[in-house]
Design a protein around this nucleic acid. Structure first.
Lengths: 255, 255
DNA sequence: CGATCTTTTGAAAAAAATCAATGAGAGTGG
DNA sequence: CCACTCTCATTGATTTTTTTCAAAAGATCG
């Protein structure tokens, strides 16, 4: 994945210290976003033992596939993923994009098998959390239980936000909402909220937004004409954050 | 709400015994759909104490409103509800329909306040489950913990199904999918899967499906012409279940 | 029984998809 | 390091789908 050098540096600066291979929530710089968020110091200590292994994935590799038996949740350490559902008739719908600190795999709990495909959009790394042990620990650590429930609930609320987007917005609103949401997520991770690289293709964005790739491209070009953003292939600069938010209007709290 | 008498009778037959006012999961006829589903007999016994109170709502009343502090989950005893989100700019999007055995209120866990409005589509009754006590009990009763996680996960998966519907289906597919899904849910509750009353308006269906009410009406009339269904106002008879499924095609596993 | 809400249906307009062609970048191998 | 592919993105013209506007007919409720 090519990124302009400055952006790449930013990303590197935000990566965890490379000199330690130990899997530790305690000193992970994602602890404010990830599972430990909001947990008491000593509860987080007990998390360390939970997070079993790291797994590296190359761009295009899949972390889980529909039908796979469910054993672990994954917390994204670095990189990013798309989640998608393959419908019986061959369509493939992107249902979300996951980045550092996000938890993946909640879809498998209900049936003990995954429903969703998760594919790395770039070289990425995840922490595997064996679910049986997470459930066990969360019976003992009330803070962990609470946080886990919070995360699931937010996932539900976030999806409702997407439903609003898909159910009631027109193309321009969808794309603007998408960009604003990305911007927010980058900011939360310490990256620039106004300049970033799209890790996904127009087709993947379109699938997520319920639009065809040509429509996504056209709308983005229009935003460029309107001087709301500057876009060149995958490189985005948000010139007028407020203007973009105004277009996104319905402002789906979550997303 | 008017229903043809036969359908009404069916509903009544499926209601819980009216002679006991005690709130008991143990002898609730919804235990195969609701929270107790899949739990061991003696674990369900311990649930009895959890379910605090019943609450009756008249058609149009709201069970929870966005902004309300979150305290309880609600299990639908009888009747039905719509869940919706009001967007900042005044739009109102229906995000789901809940019927007996369904759990409501999961949206509030994440922020301790509700995000979603829940409104009774007919006179209804719910069991309130104080969430603090549910969390507490689920630390002691592994079966309850597991079941609660399963329910949340299924909620997530179900919403992904809706996202597929909204993101990739055309109007006819959406309406067909909706009808097939309703049919399945009625069957699971012991009602006729081929003849039922819609408790929601065309506008509410349209909002849920990302269509205008006129489009919903037109598509249903077309299905009537095609002899797939027979529809007169809110009364639906499914004449050709397989044909309807064929139109729904993408068959979103969940929904 | 009158008033209101809901549904149906038609005609016209708007939005997005489709079809098609061109162009830009990234990655590969000589 | 450059030429060559291949994928991805852009843009235009046209078609399809859905929405919008409008009117009328059916239910429902006090």
């Amino acid at each position: 994945m090519l990124a302009t050098t400055e952006i790449q540096q930013q990303n590197d600066a935000c990566n965890f210290a490379k000199d330690t291979n130990a899997v530790r929530c305690t000193n992970c710089n994602l602890r404010e976003l990830c599972l430990p968020q909001g947990m008491a110091q000593d509860d987080v200590l007990r998390l360390n033992g939970l997070v079993a292994t790291r797994r590296r994935l190359k761009r295009g590799e899949s972390l889980q596939r529909a039908g796979d038996p469910f054993r672990s949740l994954y917390a994204v350490r670095s990189g990013s993923f798309k989640t998608c559902i393959a419908t019986e008739d061959g369509r493939d719908q992107v249902t979300g994009f996951k980045m550092s600190g996000d938890l993946i795999g909640l879809d498998g709990i209900g049936t003990n098998a995954h429903i969703i495909d998760v594919i790395a959009l770039e070289d990425s790394e995840v922490c595997a959390i064996p679910f049986a042990r997470l459930e066990e620990s969360s019976r003992e650590i009330a803070g962990l239980q609470k946080q886990f429930h919070r995360i699931m609930s937010r996932e539900i609320v976030g999806e409702q936000g997407v439903m609003v987007l898909l159910g009631s917005m027109r193309a321009e609103e969808r794309v603007a909402t998408f960009l604003v949401s990305l911007s927010r997520r980058f900011r939360a991770r310490g990256y620039s909220p106004t300049e970033f690289h799209l890790r996904m293709t127009r087709e993947e964005i379109g699938s997520y937004l319920g639009l065809k790739l040509e429509t996504v491209s056209r709308v983005m070009s229009r935003f460029d004409d309107m001087k709301l953003i500057q876009i060149k292939q995958k490189h985005v600069v948000i010139l007028d954050p407020q203007g973009l938010k105004d277009v996104a209007a319905p402002a789906t709290s979550g997303l």
